[in-house]
Design a protein around this nucleic acid. Structure first.
Lengths: 109, 109
DNA sequence: TTGACATGTGACCAAAAGGTCACCTATTGT
DNA sequence: ACAATAGGTGACCTTTTGGTCACATGTCAA
């Protein structure tokens, strides 16, 4: 059964720029190993490993072993839970429409 | 025109338990003054003030002055932007249905 | 089976964050 | 005017966090 990560672990995990960029990378393309991620980050392997560990503990990243490699996958569930904590169903419509409109306007510059 | 808070400010703001409980409080009931919020938090006024300042800088809380009181309101927009950063429109359906189902099941114990 | 590859752990240090306080400004009601 | 109320600032200390390294384990391929 899946471990339940505390709220705190999730928010702490998201508080660091490097960890957010790791999530961005996995959002774009899943299933990377530690080695691959390290190569893109100008930081020691140990630093990256520590960050991945924190993301995994927070359940934001799920891993699967394949031989001597450990593959990393983004898990969107904790992100959705953050959303639902402070945006109720009624507000969601208004806010998502507003944000989508703003994004569309800005993309046209 | 509204100030644009950096990503970093938003995530750093959310990283602290006290600040999240302030957002919870404002989510439930908007428009509280510093004094009201302090009374509910077993922390010095200075601590609470510092936290509110950080939330305000992150644009998670919007304020309005009324006489010598400063009223605080929750702003859901940055929360929605976090959501949209790592959950695309296709994934959103799957994840929100999954989370809603899980919530429903758990509420029945 | 042995050398190269991929990942893991604990100690350590510098930087950042959380909390409190002395002191200060602005607004109100009488 | 002035006492009481509401909020604001900078210095200070303690705790937490980010990053690196020496060292260690597990896996593969020849």
């Amino acid at each position: 059964m899946p471990e339940v990560a505390s709220d705190d672990a999730v928010f702490k995990a998201l508080a660091d720029r490097t960890r957010r960029s790791l999530l961005d990378r996995l959002f774009e393309r899943d299933g990377a190993s530690l080695g691959e991620l390290e190569a893109e980050l100008s930081m020691s392997r140990f630093g990256v490993m520590k960050h991945l560990r924190i993301l995994e503990d927070a359940n934001l990243v799920i891993t699967r072993r394949s031989g001597r490699k450990k593959l990393h996958y983004l898990n969107p569930v904790p992100i959705r839970l953050i959303h639902d904590r402070w945006i109720d169903k009624y507000t969601e419509r208004r806010v998502s429409m507003l944000v989508d409109l703003k994004t569309k306007l800005e993309s046209r510059e």
